[in-house]
Nucleic acid binder design. Structure first.
Length: 214
DNA sequence: CCCCAGGCCGCGC
DNA sequence: GCGCGGCATGGG
């Protein structure tokens, strides 16, 4: 099967996803997406929410206020998100990047290459920022995507990030990248977990790992 | 108690 | 260019 079929099956099974809504009063609201993209690195989203709430509480809701904030205080705020020493530095770096572009409005035109040249921003974080905060579709390849493709037999496991990204982008329209990724996350949390729960999985019949004897 | 979670960096090879 | 250890918290 092709990745495009995965989209069709998951879309039919779960319906439209509402993903990565910026609910706090960050300015602009997409700045919250950028902060969340950094904070969620290798961490459960639930922990990120606590850190974002702390920031909203202290009104650290735009890149300028983050730049002005003492680094130790910032670390304390984002502590629940884990790896807080690294992440505080990474947040500062992204805030500097926004400032260097003359504000968030201009920042949204940033190149992927420039994002990747920023310490603390790897391919997944860069694509999440481009796609969800800058409105410029770029498929996000995460742990869930790799695990799903692997179990479906569509990748061996040693393919590079860029290879998988290109593969996913070539089978749906750019306008569907965000939705596709959101569906994969939803599916991976419901069924295709680290320890798979295959009962009721909409992809079971097409999956190499699943029990297709129904 | 254990393992896990929407990565990335710096290092050795 | 690829594999590995380190980074840290909160939930199951």
């Amino acid at each position: 099967m092709q990745p495009g079929e995965i989209y069709d099956v998951l879309s039919e099974a779960y319906g439209p996803q509402e993903w990565w809504p910026a609910k706090r009063n960050f300015r602009p609201k997409d700045w919250e997406v950028v902060v969340g993209a950094v904070l969620t690195q290798n961490v459960n989203w639930n922990n990120v929410e606590k850190a974002l709430d702390n920031m909203a509480m202290k009104r650290i809701t735009d890149h300028r206020s983050m730049l002005k904030m003492n680094i130790a205080a910032l670390k304390k705020l984002i502590r629940p998100a884990g790896f807080y020493n690294q992440k505080a530095e990474r947040l500062k770096a992204v805030a500097e990047l926004v400032e260097a572009h003359g504000g968030f409005r201009n920042f949204t035109g940033i190149t992927r290459k420039e994002l990747l040249a920023t310490k603390g921003i790897g391919p997944e974080t860069a694509d999440a920022i481009l796609s969800y905060a800058c409105g410029r579709p770029s498929f996000v390849v995460d742990l869930y995507t790799r695990r799903l493709l692997s179990r479906l037999g569509l990748v061996q496991g040693n393919e590079s990030y860029e290879t998988i990204k290109s593969s996913m982008e070539s089978c749906v329209n750019p306008g569907l990248y965000n939705e596709f990724h959101a569906l994969i996350v939803e599916h991976s949390k419901r069924f295709c977990r680290k320890l798979p729960r295959c009962a009721g999985c909409p992809l079971q019949k097409r999956c190499l790992s699943g029990d297709a004897s129904d």
